[in-house]
């Protein structure tokens, strides 16, 4: 008899986590960001409850600045899966004209992602929220528990996390408090892509290389989907063969030059890559430790 392969072991661990949450909490919800990690997480949830349905809704916090292809994919995906999808946006901030160009990325994220998320969680009285974040993504995520306690304001206190031994998770909370749960904590970017390949999981076509019209700004390739993304001095509008390595809002997430138009090619590209996937996110670089600051305020 053999040991489990690396992917099988990760899958078994994640399913265990997802089942614990569904059994221990009154109102769990799964954050669905439409990206590759969310796609894997939803597949794991299907597996966890098979042959039953996924016993909680999905929640998409929509900044309204996501790529168009993401939204098309989301709606088709949710319909095919037959799962309940809740979409929440910070409409009052959007009506007041919030966008990254006017507010800067930090304030924009604060309103359209963090605030919006906290509002949505409160509106649904959710006591547990799954997120697809992985510890290999970023240095403050590397520090977070699988069950991550949030106080009644949704804040994370990284200096005072609950000990988490073996696979015994402490999900006890008082009304208003909640737990963020990260079933993919121990997955790496490479694991996620291999799993998508092996499991045949549908993903947004933006992950595959194709000739796309982009604004070339220094090292960044920005897709001009929003009106306020206009060429600035020194920018060039060009057709570049490129793809997205991670998905976010179109004005703030850069594409990478790539020929990888199939999963095997993406995996091959990843073997050789020398930079982390968040390198192409504008928002992580606002200042040193900015992810930690955002997470403390309630960001995923």
């Amino acid at each position: 008899m053999s040991r489990l392969s690396h992917l099988q072991a990760l899958e078994a661990e994640s399913i265990h986590i997802i089942r614990e949450v569904a059994s221990e909490f009154q109102r769990p919800v799964m954050l669905y960001s439409i990206g590759k990690d969310s796609s894997v997480m939803v597949r794991l949830a299907q597996k966890a409850f098979y042959p039953g349905p996924i016993p909680f809704p999905l929640l998409h916090v929509d900044t309204t600045y996501k790529f168009k292809e993401m939204i098309e994919f989301r709606d088709k995906f949710a319909a095919e899966l037959g799962v309940k999808l809740i979409v929440h946006s910070n409409t009052s901030a959007l009506e007041a004209g919030a966008n990254p160009f006017r507010l800067g990325t930090e304030r924009c994220c604060g309103l359209l992602k963090t605030q919006s998320l906290l509002d949505a969680l409160r509106a649904g009285s959710y006591d547990a929220a799954f997120g697809g974040a992985r510890r290999d993504e970023e240095k403050s995520r590397a520090k977070e528990r699988i069950f991550s306690f949030r106080d009644s304001l949704g804040q994370w206190d990284p200096k005072n996390q609950r000990p988490e031994l073996w696979n015994l998770f402490n999900g006890r909370v008082e009304p208003g408090e909640s737990i963020r749960v990260f079933p993919l904590s121990n997955w790496t970017e490479m694991d996620v892509w291999q799993y998508i390949h092996v499991e045949n999981i549908p993903i947004v076509p933006l992950y595959f290389a194709k000739d796309r019209q982009v604004l070339v700004r220094g090292n960044s390739l920005i897709m001009p989907e929003q009106d306020f993304v206009k060429p600035q001095l020194g920018d060039r509008l060009e057709t570049v063969r490129c793809r997205m390595r991670s998905l976010g809002c179109s004005p703030c997430t850069g594409a990478i030059r790539s020929d990888a138009d199939t999963l095997p090619k993406i995996i091959a590209e990843l073997v050789a890559v020398r930079n982390s996937e968040r390198e192409n996110r504008v928002i992580d670089h606002d200042r040193e430790g900015s992810m930690e600051l955002k997470k403390r305020e309630g960001y995923f």
């Binding site: 510890r135 970023e138 240095k139 403050s140 590397a142 520090k143 990284p158 790496t188 930690e292």
Partner: peptide, 23 residues
């Protein structure tokens, strides 16, 4: 590379466990 919290970088000590992955 592992002391990723602001307080850790300021104080030069590790406060909580960091997980890293390599092959």
């Amino acid at each position: 590379l592992t002391d990723g919290l602001r307080a850790e970088r300021e104080q030069g000590i590790t406060i909580d466990v960091a997980y890293r992955y390599f092959a």
